[in-house]
Amino acid sequence: MGRRILYFLLSIFLLSAVTFYMARLAPGDPLVSYYGDRAEKMSPKERKWAEEKLGLEDPITVQYIRWLERSFHGDFGISYKYKTDAVDVIKGRAGNTLILGGIGFVLIFVLSLLLGVLCAWNEERLLDRMICKIGTAASCIPEFWLSLVLILIFSVNLRLLPSSGAYTVGGKGGISDRIRHLILPMVVVVASHLWYYAYMVRNRLLEEVRADYVLLARSKGLRKRSIMFRHCLWNMMPSYLSIMAVSVSHILGGTYIVETVFSYPGLGTLAYESARYQDYNLLMVLCLMSGILVILCNMAAQMINEMIDPRMRTAPVMSKSRKSRPPGAAEKADK
């Protein structure tokens, strides 16, 4: 466990360093994000003064060390664009993203598993083929277009659902209002990610169904249902969990287009803008957050996988049993 925490800290440190350098080496003018259009009209003297004020004139390494020092004390600096503490900016929007992305993630997780199993169960039958075809077609539709069509149908024509925002501005309609606002973006998020995970589940399951142990399970008279759920699904779980763990931040933060189209105040837009306009401090916090999230999810997935599959448990367990009983000796012990 100690080693894991060490790796964790090390990778966070590396991530922060790489992000820090990359952001600063990328072309662009951070002053634009702080001063807006005024930055272009500044005299060299004013520029120098502004850079000094933001601490941008020092070599990058010096800046990085300074940033490290400050962030150790919980001070991640101010967002250049919003002129307030970067963490506060994120706090204001994290809730929205968590609702959209988090629920979206759970939905994708469950639905793709269900769809995958359904397809694998009806392999090469009509249902399977239809789902696969629909999936292929759905994957071809770009997110923004789908969003626009949904808005056109449900907001403009049918006037059933709101077209933008996370809640009615000035409104008082609590949770039901939020849910109504959530429906359309959620549909887009889920619909755009669901298919390839479902495909993956289907194909991995079909691989498992062809494994040798399934023959043994069938020859002992097990029913298809128990074979599929108790044997195949369980065998497939580790790889599915690993994939899902990596995609957490992808699904959670990669909602830029959805957020833009629906004017949904979430982290996706924030992340895009901070990178686009050199809002360094904000960018650092966002990167660290997604980094920590991915690593934590990976660790969780690893732990669950080890519970499922004994072969993934740490090496010593295996080789101990191997070493203490070499093949010949084990057989002799049987006798």
Partner: peptide, 18 residues
């Protein structure tokens, strides 16, 4: 299972590993 059952060539893959 009841009337007939089967054992296979490769014991490494015939059992469910998990």
């Amino acid at each position: 299972g009841k009337l007939f059952s089967m054992i296979f060539q490769d014991p490494m893959t015939a059992l469910n590993p998990v």
